[in-house]
Computed example of a mutant assay.
Amino acid sequence: MPPTSRNRGRAARAKAGHPELDIERMTAGWKRTEWRAGREWYVQPVSERRAAKSYTCPGCGREVAPGTAHLVVWRADGVLGDQADLAARRHWHTHCWRMSTP
């Protein structure tokens, strides 16, 4: 049975590899700025629907499973620049971020 057009598109995207980090795309979504421990952080919610991959939460060390609403957090005031800050972003459970002091 031939692959559906949906699967062909997915396979083509997989072969193409991952694009470079796009600061404009990452920062264009709804996000807020928070201050923690004297540092400024960007906090961007990820809905259950958009959560497609598994990550390890730096707050608790447990998995942020696909399909779990969570937060993506990165420095807003890093000294190495926006690209380095974005590359160092982490996916947190919402509760873990609220309870943390990064």
Rank of each mutant, 00 (worst) to 15 (best):
E24N: 02
S54M: 12
A69R: 10
M26F: 13
C57E: 00
A16D: 03
P2L: 07
D85Y: 03
R39C: 10
R62C: 00
D85M: 05
A52S: 13
T94R: 13
L80N: 14
R32P: 00
A11F: 07
M1S: 13
W35D: 14
A16M: 11
Q83M: 12
A76Y: 04
T68W: 05
G9W: 09
A12G: 04
D22A: 04
W41A: 06
G61L: 04
K15A: 14
H93L: 09
R39W: 03
S54I: 05
G78S: 07
M99Q: 15
H70M: 09
P2S: 05
Y42E: 06
T33W: 02
L21P: 00
R49G: 09
V46M: 11
R98G: 14
C96W: 02
A87S: 15
T27N: 09
T68K: 12
L80R: 15
R98Y: 10
R90I: 00
D77M: 10
Y55Q: 01
A16I: 01
G9V: 09
V43S: 04
G59A: 04
Y55G: 00
A16V: 07
H70K: 06
L86T: 06
L71P: 00
P66H: 01
R25W: 01
W35A: 14
R6H: 10
A11K: 13
D82G: 12
W92F: 03
H93N: 10
